[in-house]
Structure formats: structure tokens, C-alpha cells
Nucleic acid binder design. Sequence first.
DNA 1: CACTAAACGGAGACAGTCCCCGCTTATCGC
DNA 2: GCGATAAGCGGGGACTGTCTCCGTTTAGTG
Lengths: 190, 190
Amino acid sequence: MTQVRPMRADARRNYERLLKVAAEAFAEHGENASLDDIAKRAGVGSGTLYRHFPTRQALLEAAYVDRIEALGSRADELARELPPGEALMEWLNELCVATIQVRGMKSLLGSAVTDGSSAALTACGTTVKGAASRLVEAAQAEGVLRADLEPIELLRLAHGVATASELANGQGREIRRYLALLTEGLRPAG
Amino acid sequence: MTQVRPMRADARRNYERLLKVAAEAFAEHGENASLDDIAKRAGVGSGTLYRHFPTRQALLEAAYVDRIEALGSRADELARELPPGEALMEWLNELCVATIQVRGMKSLLGSAVTDGSSAALTACGTTVKGAASRLVEAAQAEGVLRADLEPIELLRLAHGVATASELANGQGREIRRYLALLTEGLRPAG
DNA sequence: CACTAAACGGAGACAGTCCCCGCTTATCGC
DNA sequence: GCGATAAGCGGGGACTGTCTCCGTTTAGTG
């Protein structure tokens, strides 16, 4: 159904180069790095870039799939090492850190949990939602997490926490505090 | 110290026109409305626009001051009508609604609570922070809000909640739920 | 080796930002 | 009223970025 014919050698080569250069460029200039510039740096025409990656979002996703995959397997690793509640919190923390510190990741993770986006089920969306679901269910089974909380809601709230921390400009130092506030609530400590 | 001489009549006229048109344009096309287009619609050259408002942020702020002021006085109104805890929650809800539904307001409120931004103490920042401080202190005095919570932290978290709700694409229907989750915490209801 | 379809690439149309500087006009002293 | 003058105007144009189109090149195949 996909890829009736394997990619031509030159196409594959350009594809790889673009991915490599794009990751560098996004890291260096943020998610708004010039696409034509990426093409130039990869030594291809802009037409080639746009053919392989029709939208900025597509390039962003392709450039960061492995990092997203890493977040996915990190979830399972944490689930093995820690009790469910802690595993979930630690994972959310790492998710927020990635959201803020890996330039370009934010819009990608954001659109992954956006409802009603055209191609909502992108690869990275599936990965992240899967990881979150597993952790959430485990925590709920243990009774350390509200039973009425949907994984996607938690992902959105985590995105919100990352955004809040970003506003503090502390390079993510506030993430743990804001996550704790979210977990424990705003009522006086009891 | 400011305004040694009053603005020339034509300057004032253009200033007003630009503000009016800008508010419409931002409402219609979001915060990225074309500035040259705003100038054109106001019947002035782009030079005039950039002279009055050196940055997009400046124009955004000028166009929305009155709405921000309204949020400020709304805080006191709520403080008079409701017990401190409820007043705070209701105000946060209205703040989030404004953040999402008034196009262009988000980046404005965001930069108002950003630490380390160059001109951090913009007018609207002061207004919003003042309102939040009054409500937070009242709630803390009543013992219904954690004593260690800074107003600015709450504003940032509210911005996060607004962002999270936005991802749900429900036109703000999720705001109350997410605010409640933040208030009560993620632990099982008790 | 020749053929063909896949892939390339960069010119160019378009849109946005922002500055510069010659021109216009409101204001003020007379 | 009436010039003088500086405050203010405005649009042309340089620049940067996006994205498409289509003539040219080249990998893969028999």
C-alpha cells in the first residue's frame, strides 16, 4: 500500500541529508529556521525540500522522530524502575524538558495533542499518546491518579506546564515546581 | 518628563485611526495580521504606523489596553461579590477565556508575565499583575490558597491552562475543567 | 547503451517587514 | 492672516522568507 517502489538512490541521499541539516538548523535557529536556507545548506534546491516535506510540520516531525521514539521507550523504562505515580511524574518532567529545551519540539508536540488538526494521527502523536496512556493507566490502577483523567488531557496540561515554565525563562528550572503544583493542587498543603 | 509638547492634531488622528483599525485586524486575522495592511486600511503609509508603534507588540498592547483594564477592574468587582477563593477562580477563568478568544491577546498576556523580557514592565503587565496580586493575597489570607504561591506563578499557570484548553479546540469549553484540575490536583478526589 | 520516468533545482511570483528621505502641513510668533 | 519651521507623512524599495512551476538531469531497467 505504501512505497510500491523503493526510493531512487539520489532521492534517498537527499532525504537523509535534508533530515540531518534540518535537525541542526532547528536546533540552532528554532522552529522558524528558513526552509530555503536548510535546502541550500543541504546542497539541494528548494523544490527538492518541498517535495520530500510538503510542510514545515512534516520536516519537523521527520527530524525529531527518533527523539520522540526515545521518549516513548523512556516511559516503559521508567515504568519498570519506579512505582507508577513516580514514573508518571518523572516522565512528564522529561517531556516538559524536551518541550522547552529542544527547539522546534514544542510546536510538534503541541500539534500532536491538538484536537481537530487535519492529520491528527501523525506518527509522533501516536507514540506520545501511547506512552502517556500506559503510564496513566498504571497510575490509575494503583489509585494514585484521578480515575477521570484522560491521557490526552494530561498531555495537554503538561504542554501547559511547559509553556508556563518557559515564561519564567529559567531554562526549565520551574518545571518540577509547576508540575508539583499541578499534582498537589493549589489548596494549602495538607 | 513625557510629552513635552502635545501631539500634533494630524498625528493624534492617525494614531487613533491606527488603533481602531488594528483592533479590527487583529480580531479578524489573529496576531499576525499584516502591519502594512493595517496601515493601508487606516489610510496612512507604513512609515506612519512604524513611527507610532515601533513593534508589533507595541501596537498589540495599545490596541488592547482597555480590555486589559477591564480585566483589572473585573478583579475588584469579583472580589466584592464573591468569597476570595471563588473570586480568584472566576477571574482566572475569565482571564483564560480572554487569552483564547480574543485573538492577539495571547502573545500580549504571555509576554506580560515573561521573566527577562526587555521591557518587562509594560502597562498591561502591571495591570494584570496588580489584579492577580490582590486576589491572591485575599485568598491566601482566608487560607484557601497555598501561602507559597506567587501571583506571577499563578498567572503563568493560567497561561498554561489557556494553552492546554486551546489544544483541545473546544473554544474554551475545557478551561473550567483544567482550572479545576489545577486547583484540586491530580490525585484521586478526596 | 538507450530509454523513460523519477527526481532535481533554481528562477520567479508573491507576501511580509521595516527603513529612508523628499514632501506636506499644523502650529506659532508676528 | 501669514510666513517660517519643525513635526509628521507616506510610499518606494531593499530585504527575507515561502512555495510552485517546469525545463533539465540522472538512476534504473532490459
